[in-house]
């Protein structure tokens, strides 16, 4: 049988896609359903004798005070980062555009912390908040006569100490997105506005900010998803102690920690997954309305 051109194209398409799709099925689809299955069992890391436990694991997660305290920590982190990173991100973007020279240098200077890995970043945070008098923060409060504080050892201080640096300096990616968005506003808008008013803050409030609404929506969504999945600082600096356990760390500790209960970890993972999904959809529904374009 001679292949027509169209049949040939269909055949080659399937041929090209088959291997990646099988691979994807094996490492995404199969694990997903495995995880779903595990969440109804009492699987341990030793992987012996699985028994089906129905919704027991879900119940035990949802009635676990530790889980809710981890969720609380996660939500506090998410809201703080959402505010800090977007506030500083948009501020930096607007200031950068205002520069007439040296934009690229400042962009580079403000962007590089993105490349610092979680491990290195955590080590830096540890030194900044170190408990002895030589830590940067203890030195700063020492100038006002305060005694050194063991930041990570105290409930109530620990989470705060983890959040300060990401809150102040975690804006790089948001900044780039805002910056690109501001740059794509046609300059005629600004020129027209400048004929009307000499006040730059008015232009920012009435032209720039409304026209980068799409960037806001995207950035808030990114903050939400990233924030709810936070793990690095909690795991690497405080190991979840003193009220710093995040929900992903809760999952990790149950999966691979000393009191391993992979079934419970899987159930918690699905609960957190559902929560992230709901939060993202909710956020899109709220902020997606009436987005502005320049057309």
């Amino acid at each position: 049988m001679k292949l027509t051109r169209r049949n040939k194209q269909i055949f080659s398409s399937y041929a090209f896609l088959s291997v990646p799709i099988i691979w994807w099925g094996m490492f995404f689809l199969v694990p997903f359903f495995m995880a779903l299955f595990f969440s109804f069992t009492n699987l341990k890391i030793s992987m012996d004798a699985i028994t089906k436990t129905g919704f027991f694991q879900y119940k035990s997660v949802l009635t676990d005070a530790d889980f809710w305290s981890a969720m609380r920590t996660t939500v506090i982190w998410t809201v703080a980062m959402m505010i800090g990173n977007n506030l500083f991100g948009v501020l930096m973007a607007i200031l950068l555009v205002r520069l007439s020279k040296g934009r690229r240098i400042f962009l580079a200077l403000l962007f590089w912390p993105t490349l610092v890995s979680a491990v290195v970043g955590s080590e830096i945070t540890k030194t900044v908040f170190s408990a002895d008098a030589t830590g940067l923060v203890n030195m700063l409060i020492g100038l006002f006569g305060a005694k050194p504080v063991a930041w990570f050892e105290r409930e109530g201080y620990a989470l705060f100490s983890l959040m300060v640096m990401p809150f102040l300096f975690g804006f790089s990616i948001k900044m780039i997105i805002y910056y690109t968005s501001v740059m794509s506003i046609p300059s005629s808008y600004f020129e027209a506005a400048r004929l009307e008013t000499g006040s730059y803050s008015k232009i920012v409030r009435h032209i720039t900010l409304p026209l980068i609404k799409n960037a806001f929506v995207l950035n808030i969504l990114l903050s939400l998803i990233d924030g709810l999945k936070v793990l690095g600082p909690m795991q690497l600096i405080t190991k979840g102690a003193n009220g710093t356990q995040s929900s992903i760390l809760y999952i990790y500790d149950y999966a691979f920690g000393t009191s391993s209960n992979m079934g419970k970890a899987a159930a918690a993972a699905f609960i957190v997954f559902a929560f992230i999904l709901l939060a993202s959809v909710g956020q899109l529904l709220i902020s997606g309305k009436g987005s502005e374009t320049y057309e």
């Binding site: 094996m26 997903f32 495995m34 995880a35 595990f38």
Partner: peptide, 17 residues
Amino acid sequence: ATMMIPGEVLMVPNYML
């Protein structure tokens, strides 16, 4: 659709695989 699934959900089964 699989982009929505956080890698953390797949941590346990992928470890076993």
